[in-house]
Design a protein around this nucleic acid. Sequence first.
DNA 1: GTGAATGGTGCGGTGTATATACCTTTGAAG
DNA 2: CTTCAAAGGTATATACACCGCACCATTCAC
Lengths: 254, 254
Amino acid sequence: MSRQNSVPPPTAGLSSDLLLGPVSGTNTFEETVQRLLQTVRLGLIAPGERLPAERDLAAQLGVSRDTLREAIGSLAGAGYLISRRGRYGGTFVSDVLPSPPVVAAETPAGAPHPSITAEEIDDVLTLRDILEVGAARTAAGRVLSPPERELLWSSLVAAADAGADEYRRVDSRLHLYIGELAGSPSLVPLLADVRMRLNELLDAIPLLMPNIAHSNKQHEQIVIAILTGRPAAAAEAMREHLGGTALLLRGFLE
Amino acid sequence: MSRQNSVPPPTAGLSSDLLLGPVSGTNTFEETVQRLLQTVRLGLIAPGERLPAERDLAAQLGVSRDTLREAIGSLAGAGYLISRRGRYGGTFVSDVLPSPPVVAAETPAGAPHPSITAEEIDDVLTLRDILEVGAARTAAGRVLSPPERELLWSSLVAAADAGADEYRRVDSRLHLYIGELAGSPSLVPLLADVRMRLNELLDAIPLLMPNIAHSNKQHEQIVIAILTGRPAAAAEAMREHLGGTALLLRGFLE
DNA sequence: GTGAATGGTGCGGTGTATATACCTTTGAAG
DNA sequence: CTTCAAAGGTATATACACCGCACCATTCAC
């Protein structure tokens, strides 16, 4: 043990045992599960809709059908997916999604929160701020094709029209699509990841209608700023929007 | 079953077969190699310095010693690491790092670029802009401890004093440390990844002294803005700084 | 009833990762 | 000069994740 013994080396002491972190240990299986979960939880495929056939999906994901099936099975067991066989069968997203395992916001006996620490909250909110504000700014700085513009607008409308039950999902989609408009393919999975983490936190607090209304108004400002090509305005609007959620979360959880 | 299928589903056609992308297929072994490579290429451990003992490092990384050794062996073969046995031995970073396999910037026969496409360049630069500008802004918005402030400043000085041979490495460290000051642990690996991708591109173009001098000046502006707590100024300075590199890259490679 | 598309099942092969134990080298301390 | 501790080097056995393939069972349009 004890590392930097002889010389306190000139470069040591900076950060960053980037080393330190445990290597992901990402099973192909677990990663596949996460992918599917994202697809469902972020609303990329709506409740009741069908996934591609197992053989096709496995090919798309670059995974053996066996592994994919294990993943599907595990998610089916959790109530997210339903498989039907036979012609015109397939694997479908549950019509009614299971409410995810809510991490208790209150500690029953004073025990430390199982997985919802203050550091996690800060981490997620900070990262989200960086990613989403940057995405909005970048998207606003690009010239968008007519179909892109229409799709953005319809995503906005969908969010505005959504009921409380589907709001989380539709909202996620809108934010994700803004990220996609930024034009960096690598950005989208990062946004998806941080959004998944955020949703996990949001699941622990109530969803209030006034907040939704407020969010919708902000969404509109963001989208309009993007459509009219004003990066600074888009960034500012997004920052405000995220700030609201951040306040809400910190208020309830910290 | 299935509710809204009558209509060509409202949610389809959006982006994002987030599904589509192939699952990473990340070997523990390859991931370990990447980690070590980052540690060396980004200057987290300087040439000549020692890595933790195999057994310790394996534990830190959450990897079996066997796998770690394979990774070390492969990097030793490539000239990045050197292992010495016996008491006070260990694994060390090569005193002189191998110049990485330069992806030819010119196509010899008109064949398509092996791995350096215009899309990759855009992707990296866009993502970098989002991450680093956001990091600078966030870092400037935090109250920094005295040691943090000193370390930031000394990183700046190190970059200013660096010779052309070590510039890439020291520059990476500075940028990475700014990211660390943003206070989001999850952000750091993302910055490291995008920086690795960027360095791969930079390796394909010459390093000019005037550019270095200019960069140093910009670094100073960024750091000062962070130290004086001016988020907008920090973001703007960082954006300018990155813009320079972006122009350079696009000029040489696109 | 027939055919086609789909999920369900079984099996064997291969490579990767782990765990454990032991050997070898080196240099400082006694 | 001997000893010892700390490091890398080696060997072997085990578990299982992932894959590819072939085949079965179910369902619905026609």
